[in-house]
Nucleic acid binder design. Structure first.
Lengths: 355, 355
DNA sequence: TACGCATTCACAATCGTTTGTGCAAAATAT
DNA sequence: ATATTTTGCACAAACGATTGTGAATGCGTA
């Protein structure tokens, strides 16, 4: 299986050009090639030029695998998300990819499908691929964080985004969910709503805790009493939103506004309201969370909290790459908190009510 | 930077366990370790057991990078899609990931953002990462396929899916777009529609050619004349759908049904129709393509062609892995054609019209 | 006893890149 | 002129797993 015809010619077949090929052609060592390509100071400008020119001419493509093996670190970033469908994670991933590509990194994406077991497997896979760093958004059911000990022990930098471990000291990029819940509720109150309900997410997840707290704080700051009956736990699916809305309608004193911690649940609520003949926003005003694409095509269009998804992805990559560059800092835990933005649409607009 | 305390102890710090560590511990060679772990026949059962046990005990994790370097091929699959938002590609990617994971491969995902330049860069990146194979769905504007010569020359197996090069002999997994256009149009005709229009996609893309041809064939088979004025080219965005629908409404004899080659365009059409006071489906019946998630939340819900996205991803991976396993077959081009399925909903249902 | 054969394993080269160290020549200082 | 620094490059050892070749062992058979 002779890959070369004679000892000093170039790869004529499909075989990729290696540094050794360049070195042979130029009569220098592979050391020189390597250092010339990485602009090392100990290589003369003339030599650098020659190497660069030949590399271009022969279409030299570095073998990242070999480089990664040698320096014990690849140019790969591992990403674990619960799922990729839906605007939020798709956009965050998009942001991650942009930022990573710009920095010369590639991205491996794994989906946990909201399953802890799969999440564990993903982590193993990614560590096996020798990723330089890990970006993780937890599956819904993850309470046990031992599979991340492996990551820490190995020294692989790790940044969580959006869905982070509850009471752990970690590096993370998150949204100010409390602020999101706050401005959303505040907006509904400003529209003149008297009884604002909340369709809340799973209580063990930090993001939903924040949104709930924001809701409560806004009520308190407005001097309104918090009626426990107006807060319904749900799983943030459309069906769960329907269930929750039905429960709220069955109340002795039903709400005249609903803030849902997720748009899908709000969509379910909207459909139940329509089926029940309630007008939105006249009878019940609606506000959601995530600014999903479909908020623009419902009737009426849905008010929702935008999370600046792509920005979150980019911020996460920035933080991760800082840790990659300076592993010593890994111990000092950092948090980046992004500010949400309320997108006001017809579902919550009652006209000049405040006036 | 001594990684080991003495010459024969184990890595106590975070350093991963290597085959050399196992070998040293057991007093055998790395050859034996490697072959025991890969169940090579030349290793005795007793030795195999010992190795396996120690590997488990020390939590040995193989360094895929090294293996990939040695055998010139990684366990990575590269994927290039135009974008990842929206149901279709997200689902296909999901299918790809499932199938790949099951086969022990990981997946690197790149988005071309419908940009040929970015697509070229993606290909380079993925080849640089030494992927074992490539799965590609073309960007809208890709006419020039020279960047794939590099792939061929290098011998990296390549499978296209959905958006394939027009007149090239390639391995591909596609939907029977013609059939999709056909059943969709046939369904509209069966509902009693007399003038079925078509909002068509960019003419140079194979998928839209197929959908258009299916539309024409269904008309012909039903003995209806094909009115060129009823076919409008569009870019398949929502805005383009609006434009197209406005043009159709301005016709002397407007259509009483529309088959759009994409759901987003159909959504635009729907909104124009509503704004114009036309009833759907009574005045104009509607059918689309892709079975996007939002087809279920419009009013009325939209009839659409389902593409069996996940199945497409899985089929593509299957084909790719066959090529990886047997590179000799790479010359014989294969095509897998999936059958579409029409999801009938209110936007096209005129009641028992055929009766 | 001597030979062939199967079993079980070690040696050593290899993939392509990076990098600490060393050595010569050229440039500068004394 | 010599002593010292700088510059420019090569040698060779890694990184960790794979694999062709060949050697030692044990067994059965002629």
């Amino acid at each position: 299986m002779a890959r070369r015809g004679t000892s000093d010619d170039l790869p004529a077949n499909g075989a990729p050009v290696s540094m050794a090929d360049l070195a042979r052609e130029l009569g220098v060592s592979t050391t020189t090639i390597s250092r010339a390509l990485s602009d090392h100071h100990s290589i003369g400008p003339a030599t650098k030029q020659k190497v660069l020119k030949l590399a271009k001419k022969l279409n030299y493509q570095p073998n990242h695998l070999a480089a990664a093996l040698r320096r014990g670190q690849s140019r790969l970033l591992g990403v674990v998300v619960p799922y990729i469908e839906g605007r939020f994670f798709a956009s965050v991933v998009h942001g991650i990819e942009q930022a990573a590509t710009k920095a010369g990194y590639s991205v491996i994406i794994c989906q946990s499908s909201e399953d802890v077991v799969q999440e564990r497997r993903n982590i193993d896979t990614l560590l096996g691929a020798q990723v330089a760093g890990l970006l993780v958004s937890l599956a819904r059911g993850t309470h046990d964080f031992r599979h991340f000990d492996k990551v820490r022990k190995r020294g692989t930098p790790l940044v969580f985004f959006d869905r982070t471990p509850a009471a752990e000291a970690v590096n993370a990029v998150v949204l100010n969910d409390r602020a999101g819940g706050y401005i959303s509720t505040q907006h509904l109150l400003a529209q003149g709503c008297q009884r604002v309900a909340h369709i809340a997410g799973p209580p063990h997840m930090t993001i939903y805790q924040g949104r709930r707290q924001g809701y409560l704080d806004a009520l308190a700051d407005a001097g309104r009493p918090a009626d426990a009956a107006l807060v319904v736990d749900a799983d943030m699916t459309q069906e769960d939103g329907e269930r929750a809305m039905r429960a709220l309608l069955a109340l002795p004193a039903p709400p005249d506004a609903v803030f849902a911690a997720g748009d899908s649940a709000l969509l379910g609520a909207l459909q139940v309201l329509k089926a029940a003949g309630r007008r939105v926003p006249a009878d019940v005003a609606l506000a959601g969370f995530s600014n999903e694409g479909f908020t623009l095509i419902t009737e009426p269009r849905l008010t929702s909290v935008d999370q600046h998804c792509e920005e979150m992805g980019q911020a996460a990559v920035r933080m991760l790459l800082e840790l990659v560059a300076d592993p010593g800092r890994a111990s000092a835990q950092r948090q980046v908190v992004l500010q949400p933005e309320l997108m006001v649409r017809e579902s919550s607009l009652r006209g000049p009510a405040g006036a």
